[in-house]
Simulated assay, not measured.
Amino acid sequence: IDVEVVKRNPGVRGFHVVKRRWVVERSLGWIMMHRRLARDYETLPASSEAVIHIASIDNLTKRITDETTPTWRGTY
């Protein structure tokens, strides 16, 4: 895995777009659609990691099969 750390431009004040940040924000948004990850209910980090894996698998299967599963936000 290659990790690229993108630093802020010290010459720019206020908000500015950081390279590829939208990918992280989008991924976190998809994961947060699962109720157990909306709050920190887990006591062990391993439990949180397992729930994140389950959420990622669910998101991947939704994209592959083009089917949706009910979420806590209420799909009507």
Rank of each mutant, 00 (worst) to 15 (best):
E67Y: 13
K7A: 05
A38W: 11
S27V: 08
V12K: 04
W22P: 00
R63D: 14
K19H: 08
W22Q: 03
R35Y: 11
T68Q: 01
T71E: 07
V24H: 13
V24Y: 15
R26T: 03
L44V: 05
G11N: 04
E42V: 08
T61D: 06
L44N: 03
N59W: 05
G14P: 02
A46G: 09
R63F: 09
I54D: 00
A46P: 02
H34Y: 07
P70I: 13
G74C: 05
V17N: 06
H16C: 13
R20L: 14
K7S: 07
E49K: 14
P70F: 07
K62G: 02
T75D: 01
S47C: 07
E42L: 06
I1M: 11
G11S: 12
R63G: 11
A50W: 03
K62L: 13
R73L: 12
A50R: 06
W30N: 13
E49M: 06
V12R: 07
V23Q: 11
V51P: 00
I31Q: 00
M33F: 07
L28Y: 08
A55V: 00
T65E: 08
R63Y: 15
R39A: 10
Y76N: 09
D66P: 06
P70Q: 01
N9K: 14
T69Q: 02
I31C: 09
I54L: 03
G11D: 09
M32A: 14
E4G: 01
L28N: 04
I57F: 01
I52M: 02
T65G: 02
V6W: 05
